[in-house]
Amino acid sequence: DKPVLAIQVLGTVKWFNVRNGYGFINRNDTKEDVFVHQTAIKRNNPRKFLRSVGDGETVEFDVVEGEKGAEATNVTGPGGVPVKGSRYAPNR
């Protein structure tokens, strides 16, 4: 398990590439950019086929120490709701 650095952090999605399945979230508290992989998205938009977060979307997440620095995990919308997802992700 990766060491946990912070829990229930709010941030804004800087960018997310649906095809490659990753992007970055900017933390509201430290203004640090945190890597996010599609496997870290815990509550996906049920209408979306692929797990994703949308550019500019506000999300809540935990921060863990990854191999290359801070990574987001347990990604949801604020308060644990499903994320909205990327407009580029296909609908079901």
Rank of each mutant, 00 (worst) to 15 (best):
A70D: 09
T58A: 11
G69A: 02
N74L: 01
N74W: 03
H37Y: 14
V59Q: 01
E60Q: 15
N91E: 14
P46S: 08
E71H: 11
P90G: 11
N91I: 11
K68F: 10
E65F: 13
T30I: 13
V63I: 14
N91W: 13
V63S: 02
V83I: 06
N74K: 06
E60Y: 06
T58I: 15
F49G: 12
G79F: 08
V83H: 00
N91Q: 10
I7S: 15
G85C: 05
T30S: 13
L50I: 15
W15C: 11
E65R: 15
V64T: 06
P78E: 05
V75K: 00
R51H: 08
V64G: 02
D1H: 11
P82E: 08
G77D: 00
F49P: 10
V81K: 15
K48H: 14
W15R: 07
V34I: 12
I7T: 15
V64S: 05
V75Q: 00
T12A: 07
A89P: 05
V83N: 01
R87S: 11
E65N: 12
T58P: 10
P46T: 07
D62N: 10
E60L: 15
E71N: 06
F16V: 08
S52N: 05
T76C: 10
E67G: 11
N44T: 10
S52P: 04
P82V: 05
P78C: 04
Y88R: 09
A70F: 13
P82R: 06
V59D: 02
V53G: 00
L50H: 10
R47C: 12
V83W: 02
R47T: 13
A89D: 06
A89H: 06
T73R: 15
S86H: 11
R92D: 06
F61G: 04
L10S: 11
V4I: 14
R92P: 07
L50T: 09
V75N: 02
R51T: 07
R92F: 11
T73K: 13
D1E: 15
D33V: 10
R51W: 04
R19S: 10
G77S: 04
V9F: 07
G77N: 02
G69M: 01
G80V: 04
N74T: 01
F16L: 14
K48D: 05
N26Y: 12
G77M: 04
F49C: 14
A72K: 01
K68N: 12
N45S: 07
G80R: 05
S52R: 03
R87M: 12
V13D: 11
T39S: 13
N74M: 01
L50R: 12
T76D: 00
N20S: 14
T76W: 00
V53T: 02
R92V: 13
I25F: 10
I25N: 09
E65I: 14
R87C: 11
G66A: 09
G77V: 05
V81S: 12
G85P: 00
K68S: 08
E65P: 06
S52V: 03
A89R: 08
P82M: 06
G79C: 11
P46I: 06
T76F: 00
Y88P: 06
F61C: 02
V63R: 03
P46E: 08
D62S: 08
G66M: 00
T76R: 09
N20D: 11
G69C: 06
G85D: 03
E65V: 14
F61K: 03
E57G: 02
R47I: 11
T39I: 08
V9A: 13
P46D: 07
V81E: 12
P82G: 04
